[in-house]
Amino acid sequence: MGRRVCMESVRGAPTIGGMAIDIDIAYVARLARIDLSDEELERIGRQLGGILEHAALVQQLPTEGVEPTSHPLPMVNAFRPDRVVPPLERDTALTQAPQAEDGYFRVPPTLEAE
């Protein structure tokens, strides 16, 4: 399943932990919910291989005992009080909708149950 672009054949084989980077680009596109043709997938897969080869440099830096940073500044506890603020008018909320009906946003039927 899926279109696998094995990077061994592309740009000198980027690796993680000695293993060639293997991108199931069709799987990634499904996760990202973007409908791409086979040619587009192939092309982007190759480009990502090149970028990842460079990005894989991050693995060369010894990071044992280094904490990851997800936030540049050391802040904590930014809260808001439990106070109601007037919501948008419904017409305003719906005005940009591609399709609306009876005060709802309208979409085609869904395939998946949650």
């Binding site: 909320a93 009876d102 005060g103 709802y104 946003f105 309208r106 979409v107 039927p109 869904t110």
Partner: peptide, 12 residues
């Protein structure tokens, strides 16, 4: 029913 529906409406 989900699978037979014609369309869906969303309330946020």
């Amino acid at each position: 029913r989900i699978k037979d529906a014609d369309h869906s409406l969303l309330d946020f």
